[in-house]
Write a protein that binds this DNA or RNA. Sequence first.
DNA 1: GTCTATATCTAGATAGAC
DNA 2: GTCTATCTAGATATAGAC
Lengths: 205, 205
Amino acid sequence: MTLALTKTDKATQILNGALQEFLAHGYAGTSMDRVAATAGVSKPTVYNHFQDKEGLFRALVQKIARERFQIKFKAEILSGPLEESLPRLLASMVNTISDDDDYQDFVRLVIGESGRFPELSRTFVTYLVRPGLQQMQDYLEQHPEFGFADSQAIAQIILGSAVYMCLTQYILHGHDIMPLSKENYIEAMTRLMLNSALSEAIQRP
Amino acid sequence: MTLALTKTDKATQILNGALQEFLAHGYAGTSMDRVAATAGVSKPTVYNHFQDKEGLFRALVQKIARERFQIKFKAEILSGPLEESLPRLLASMVNTISDDDDYQDFVRLVIGESGRFPELSRTFVTYLVRPGLQQMQDYLEQHPEFGFADSQAIAQIILGSAVYMCLTQYILHGHDIMPLSKENYIEAMTRLMLNSALSEAIQRP
DNA sequence: GTCTATATCTAGATAGAC
DNA sequence: GTCTATCTAGATATAGAC
């Protein structure tokens, strides 16, 4: 076991502990004592690997945004005609977030700190939002039968509606008091796309 | 000046100070010292009106969700044919949030604390999300020419896309690194609705 | 590099004068 | 009801032994 490996292990250990604590208590609500305890190291070790609390937080969020929580649409989901693939795609996105408590907490953390750590929210946009939008746009453009004039804007609309479901139902706990049907939403969205394709086909024969 | 009025004034004063501090620093990042200083009262006065920090925070968020930040679509925006009223409505929603820094901070605060204060996020859903959805649904149903089978699901989709714009562009500061055209979005959304209306009319003559 | 022990400060909350 | 002054706990960060 080399020194370099030991150092890497400790750093990873610390980041794992920090992730748990920051996800559970937010930035200001997290103490370096508990980070050290959860990571299984002493406090000076934490300060040996990271300059201070801010530095640890920035390093953590950037690492997590790059390495975890990236939604990558699988090929088998994207395959087939749009009346099958689009509902699959929408269900997959919503379920990915609704089933993953850590994902929801990470979104809460990044949005909650976006006023005080704007560059971290930009990292979130760069590594999570923008690739998601690009994938959706690619999907739309691989289905020319949609016939959309502005695939980027449509991608925003589709993604936005799915994010809204996750935000209001799960992140904001609206499911308990204002349950919205996932199935109805997916059906309405799919129908909207198919209807649009039909109309565009009529208008541009 | 009666005692009752004096008490009301102090409570309002405290809530105003607390609002500023909580919006700027979040729940855990806000100190009761600064709340008192910003409100222009002493700390024991704060504790005389509110049981503790949590009680103050709950009272504040509930009051603000009920009294401020409610989006009420104006009649002159909703009037006219949908190819005029819908773009106006979308632009109004997005601009309302993009122009109001306090609104953005309030959203950050509620989402950021939604894991630790779930009942406050439900209050947010009850007083801000649900009425917004209902208004959109009412608008759609007052325009039978849309011909939607599921007006609630369509209302979600429209609102969701607008919220997504605000979230990614302004709250998460995506505008600096991934600018999305408000005009393109509004045009695409409007066209989607008009196309859908056309198709529905064809399929149900 | 890592720990025990500690310095320093600020937090939430309150006692007691008026 | 409101203030000054204060208590106590827990926060960030580090000194110094190993």
